[in-house]
Nucleic acid binder design. Structure first.
Lengths: 116, 116
DNA sequence: GCCATGGATTGACATTTGTCGATATAGATG
DNA sequence: CATCTATATCGACAAATGTCAATCCATGGC
């Protein structure tokens, strides 16, 4: 369940690969696609957005169910997908589960597109 | 690394909402998800990568079928999805169809993640 | 005109995905 | 303990997705 996205499987360089690099192989493509697939649903994008703009950068499920107009099990399911993709963090405090962005995860996903 | 270049699809404000900006609405989320969904398949990522690193930034279907180990109809299908998403351009020259990246499209997709 | 070739389209099929209702679990509260 | 509340998980189901084989459409060469 450790599906954290590989930060720089491409090159050792931290950024800015020049044009003309070799095309990605099947393994890299699959890893990148796994994260982008988690981002490819409108409701999950809204979840991330709400969490990001939430108080203290976090939100609990009860804050997320109503604005999306989805059932609680469905929201929980989407949140699990985002956690599994390494994009969200879950912290349980009392009865509530608080979700927050994994620092740098969205930036890494963004970079993976530019690195094509 | 501020959320720059939020296109005018966002709010009336031109740019740079502070951290507490409003979350995306359903319409924006759907539009962003449509592009990211096109990017959420490993074979399509490889197609984009091969096209990008191809001679003159373009490639025809015959160049793409073999490295992906997929049938020609399947490759054509994926290419259509990428064209429909506004990521690839198709130009027919003679018998061949040449595909090339739409300038700025990948950068825009990348930004749409940061703009969450 | 006829045929070969590159590519798009169609139809079918198995797999995955998004959603919901029902149920289970875990912490708080009486 | 009994119960309520917030979440997670399970089972089901319709819809979407990725793939292939077969077929159709253009274009170029004879």
């Amino acid at each position: 369940m450790e599906t954290l996205l590989a930060p720089e499987t491409r090159t050792g360089a931290p950024c800015c690969e020049p044009a003309g690099g070799p095309a990605l192989d099947a393994i890299e493509a699959q890893a990148t696609a796994r994260v982008l697939k988690a981002l490819s649903d409108p409701n999950r994008l809204r979840l991330l957005s709400i969490v990001k703009s939430g108080e203290g950068g976090e939100a609990c499920v009860c804050d997320l169910t109503e604005p999306l107009d989805l059932g609680q099990p469905t929201v929980s399911h989407h949140l699990k997908i985002l956690v599994d993709a390494g994009l969200l963090n879950r912290e349980k405090r009392g009865t509530w589960s608080y979700y927050s962005l994994v620092p740098g995860a969205l930036e890494a996903a963004s970079q993976s597109i530019l690195a094509l």
